[in-house]
Nucleic acid binder design. Sequence first.
DNA 1: ACGAGCGCCTGTCGGC
DNA 2: TGCCGACAGGCGCTCG
Length: 281
Amino acid sequence: MPELPEVETIVRSLRNPENDLLKDEQSLRGRSGIIGKTIHDADLRWLRTLATPEPEVFQQRITGQNILSVDRRGKFIVMTLDAGTLLFHLRMSGDLRVESQTQPVQTHDRLIINFVDKQRLVFNDTRKFGRVWLVDEVSEIFANLGPEPLDPKLTGEDLYESWSRSTRMIKTLLLDQSLLAGVGNIYSDEALFRARIHPSTPGRFLTVEKCDQLLAAVREVLEEGIRRNGASIDWVYRGGDFQNYFKVYQRTGEACEICGTPIERLVIGQRSSHFCPHCQL
DNA sequence: ACGAGCGCCTGTCGGC
DNA sequence: TGCCGACAGGCGCTCG
């Protein structure tokens, strides 16, 4: 489930849920802030979930540390500790929740971080693709990450610079985290629809104007996603409702809301792309 | 430099 | 009912 808006929603709720824009109690279920909490220990229930360091080193290094801040970089969740940084990547099915240690452990809980106040942070990940890192320097992990799409300093010209010499399809370029960090399969399809760009357009065919429009569309859909607390589909429910506002994603065969042409699906770069063949050129 | 294919995993859904 | 393939929000690898 998690692309930039879903990760951002989780980060905000971990930071200070009482100030969240979340409207109903449902969305706040099981969530509370973790900033300032002290880690007692960790329970790693699926070995490969921990990318680095070795489990014993992780356990020893994390004990007694305070969580100073919770932030987001691309699709990564970044927790600054007294010494070092704890990073989470949710990949396809990861989720983080905060609850009392008296709650029963759930089926797909992969890493449990217990706090001294008897609360805990739980990394639940059905498909086991998610990863956790404890590092001294985040640059080790972020070295290859592109700019933040919502950074006001980023311009359409910057994207034109990184895309315009490429023969790769724009859909693939949008998903390339080294060029732009945080956009995934849903938001790339939705942004391309809004910018009226066909997903298989080669990067080199895009003008500066098109890049401007696409960046604006990317920001539009990301901001709407954040405003709606992300999208919730399948069995992963978190209270967001952006899925009710998709214009093309997983709407193959349905009428385009602009022109009525059936939405088509095309596999690009091993990922499904949804688009209107009439509106997107 | 690029795309295709596959691995990593579990779960759901539709067709037969 | 059960089995089987397709597919799912991501990303890293190898191989042409």
